[in-house]
Computed example of a mutant assay.
Amino acid sequence: MSIKVHLKMNCPYTNELIRNVLEERNDLFTLTDSSTLNDDNTLYWLEYEELDFDMLYRLIKESNKKKILANSYCIRKGLLRKAHFAMFVQKYLAKQPNSVLRDHYPETHILDLIHPDYLEEALNEAFELRDTLEANTKENTEPIPFILKASILDKASELCIFYTQAELEEFFTSKYDDDDESIANVREWIVQRYIKNPKLLPIYQNRKFHLRVYVVAERNLRIYVYDGILALFASFPYDAADNDQTFDRLRHITNTCVQIESKIDEEDLVKEFFSLESMDDDLRSRIFEQIKSIVKDIFTGLHNEITVFQPIRNAFEIYGFDFLIDENNQVYFLEANAFPDFKQTGNSLSILIKELFQNLVQHIVLPYFGYEESSEITQRKLHLVYEKQKTF
C-alpha cells in the first residue's frame, strides 16, 4: 500500500525540493490533494497552521493503529520562543550546573515590558543587567555590549546593540512613538551579552558569519544533527569598534534576509561550512562535536519540560539552529527556529537541502510506515545525538 502525501509548503523553493525527493520514490509515495483527514498511511507535510493537531492527539489517545505522520509538533515554545528558552536554561542550569550550556549559551536576561514607561521596573527585575549597564557608563571601564531581541520575532527583526540604559530607552521610545503596532504587541524580550570577538577568516574579508545547523526531531524522541551545515556571512568586514552610533547591520547581522540590502553575490553570502577554506578538517570536526554536544544537552533538558516542549509519536520536525564561533573556536548557541527559511541556501547549494529531505525520508518517514530504511547513499548525513533514555 502506497503512502498518501499531502504536501503544501508556502515557499516554492522548499515545496519543489520536497516534491522532487518524494517523486524519486513514486513506487511508495502518492501525492494527493483530496482524502479524509484521518486516512491510514498518510503523510502530512504542511504549514504549521494547516495541520490538524486535534486529530493527531486523538489518534494517540485512542491508541489508534492508523499510520499517520505529520511534519511538526504542536507544543515547542520552550525551544522556539527566546524568552521561554532562556527561562528553561536558567532552570536547567540550577539542576545541572555542569551542563555544557553554561559555557555555550551567552549570558541572557529577560525583560517583560509592555511599554517604555515601565523599562525601569523591568530592569529592576533584571538587576544584574541593570548594574552592568550602569557600570558601562563609568570612565576607565571597557563597556560590555548587549544585544536586544524580541522573543517571538525572527529574521533579525527589532535587533538593537547597546551599552547603556539610556540607549535602550531611546530604542524603545523611538519604536513606540512611531506607533509600530508590531513592536507594541511584543511583551517579552531577551538581552544577551554580545559576542564581540567572532571568528573571522581573512580569506573571506574578515566578514562575520554564523552557522545554520539543521536539527531533526522525530517521534518521542530522537534527535539528529545534519552535517550539511551552512555558513551565513555578513556583507561587509566586521568592525568591533562599531558602537551604537555607527552600528551597521550589514557588518554585524549575518541573516541572509538582512543582506538583501547589499549587492553581494549569493555565493559570497552562503557557503557550506565543511568546505570553508582556511579551516582544517580537525578544527571543523572539533566545532561539529561542540554543536552535537550542545544540541544533545538542550533536548536532554527539554524532554522533561512537557508544558513547553511536547514531542508526539506521530510527528517529526526540522529546526534551524543558529550558532556562532568566537576567535577561540568556542561555539555558542544563539536560537532555534521551526520551519526554517530553506530558500536562504540559494540555488548553488540546493543539493544540501535536497539531501536533508532525502535523509529524512530514508531514515525517518519510511521506517515509520513499516518500510526498511533506504540504502540510497547521500554525501551528507544525519547524526543521532539524543534518544529517550539514551545519549550518544
Rank of each mutant, 00 (worst) to 15 (best):
T345R: 02
A135V: 10
I260Y: 12
F333E: 03
P145Y: 06
F85C: 08
Y386L: 04
N20M: 06
N255V: 06
I203A: 12
L129K: 03
D177K: 11
H383V: 01
L113G: 04
Q310R: 12
T256C: 03
I3K: 00
F309I: 10
V100Q: 05
R207D: 07
Y92I: 07
Q379A: 12
F357K: 01
N243L: 05
T32F: 05
Y92F: 15
T14R: 02
S72W: 07
R76P: 01
R102S: 11
D227Q: 08
S151P: 03
D239Q: 05
E128M: 12
F342I: 06
E169Y: 07
G346F: 00
L153M: 14
E107R: 05
L51D: 02
R212P: 03
T42M: 10
A338H: 12
Y214I: 05
K4I: 13
D180W: 06
I353S: 02
V270F: 01
A150K: 04
K208H: 09
F288M: 12
D27K: 02
V258F: 02
E261M: 13
S151V: 02
K271F: 04
A166S: 12
D39A: 14
R187G: 05
P237I: 05
F85V: 01
T30V: 12
L59D: 00
S2I: 11
T137W: 07
T30F: 11
I203Y: 11
R284V: 05
R212H: 03
Y214Q: 06
P367D: 08
T141W: 10
P237N: 07
I152K: 09
L56W: 02
K138D: 12
E47R: 06
E188P: 06
N41E: 11
T36V: 15
T137N: 10
F53H: 03
R286H: 13
A240Q: 12
I75A: 05
A231P: 02
D242L: 10
S174V: 08
V308F: 15
D103W: 08
R81W: 12
A135T: 09
